[in-house]
Design a protein around this nucleic acid. Structure first.
Lengths: 205, 205
DNA sequence: TAGTATAGTATACTTAAGTATAGGTTTATA
DNA sequence: TATAAACCTATACTTAAGTATACTATACTA
């Protein structure tokens, strides 16, 4: 027997999905109308295999609710469901260890398939939401770079000249040159193009 | 009744998959051992709903076989199957209108789910293959750039100096400068850093 | 309080980048 | 066979980029 807990504040949506899930397969479905009551159900039932959280639901607070559920019940697979198929939300959710992102625009059969996928250990993200997914930032290579050098690097990353950067930061061009030179040695590159590419590859700006 | 044609040159793999598909659901499964015989079956049967092509199979010729099948039978959903879960191949296949990419490392239940997904109109790509997928290239902004200028731009995009580019292309530095200047005006940028960023943003190299 | 890091400036210099004009070759196309 | 386009080179020049050393000033820290 597979236990599924579905949490959504829209009664109609939640209950019809629950009813549908119980008809098509041997699922035992629990429901909740917000995050608090969802976590309450979690603590009362022996084991929920899959927890489906609505993104726009009291207590969710963006992706904080997702993280809270994931850390509180690591054995349970947690998926996020949302009415708007936002790419950024989906990617952030997956980065925060969601097992799946379920847009409500999905067809009923696709919805079932997605749930089966997640239950079988796969992670599910609709293809049209991942066709160009931005990777996460990597700040490790920039720990030695000072604040002012960082501002310089930021302007360098849009292809500005030293003179333009000096004007924008309201300092002399020689000072910019100094910052630029320090950036090179700290990043291990040898010119401004390499520095810009280096930062961009690590999705700094 | 749903018709599925599975084409793979490994008899054991193909026939066990076919047998498995017929047991779990109401699928009518056809088989082929290479692309030529697959297309032959296609022309003989009224309608194949899903065609599964093995990437390493006689007649495939990389992704040419996929394209051939897609264009010859636009009404049929075509998925690519491969023993090695290569990200680049998967993305290229999806760009070439494959309805799914199925790594053979998939579990049996996930395999079934993937097929159901594709049959229901979704497109399927395993999540671990898309966690940081590069977007599709955009060549529109580079139609006026000549071949030699393109080679120059490529080296410029790794932060090389004019002198280094000249050495690599075995031409004089002045020629490189000419190419670089032409690149600037064609791309509408004003220095090499902007040119590199411009190309990178469009995933050219 | 001496040391260290960041930040800014100044002067001076070398090298690279970028612009401009002129002229040459090959190759494909009208 | 012109005529264009891509490709390459030469000379000459201006500006930007990058390096080096030396000198302030502030703020934090051992």
């Amino acid at each position: 027997m597979t236990n599924i807990l579905i949490a959504d504040d829209h009664d109609l949506v939640r209950d019809t999905i629950a009813a549908y899930l119980e008809t098509v397969d041997s699922f035992k479905v629990f429901t909740a109308h917000d995050l608090a009551s969802a976590l309450e159900v979690m603590s009362g039932v022996d084991s929920i295999d899959l927890l489906i959280l609505d993104y726009n639901m009291p207590g969710m607070n963006g992706l904080q609710g997702l993280e809270r559920a994931c850390t509180s019940y690591p054995a349970t697979k947690v998926a996020l469901m949302s009415g708007v198929a936002n790419r950024e939300i989906a990617n952030n959710a997956m980065e925060r260890h969601a097992r799946g992102f379920i847009p409500k625009s999905l067809s009923a059969t696709s919805f079932i398939n997605a749930i089966k996928f997640i239950l079988s250990g796969e992670r599910y993200l609709p293809f049209d939401l991942v066709s160009s997914a931005p990777a996460s930032k990597n700040h490790d290579d920039f720990t030695n770079v000072s604040a002012r050098e960082m501002q310089t690097l930021e302007q360098l990353c849009i292809g500005l000249s030293n003179k333009e950067i000096a004007r924008n930061l309201d300092i002399q061009e020689v000072t910019v040159k100094l910052h630029v030179k320090n950036i090179f040695s700290k990043l291990g590159v040898s010119n401004r193009t390499q520095a810009a590419l280096f930062a961009k590859e690590r999705y700094l700006f």
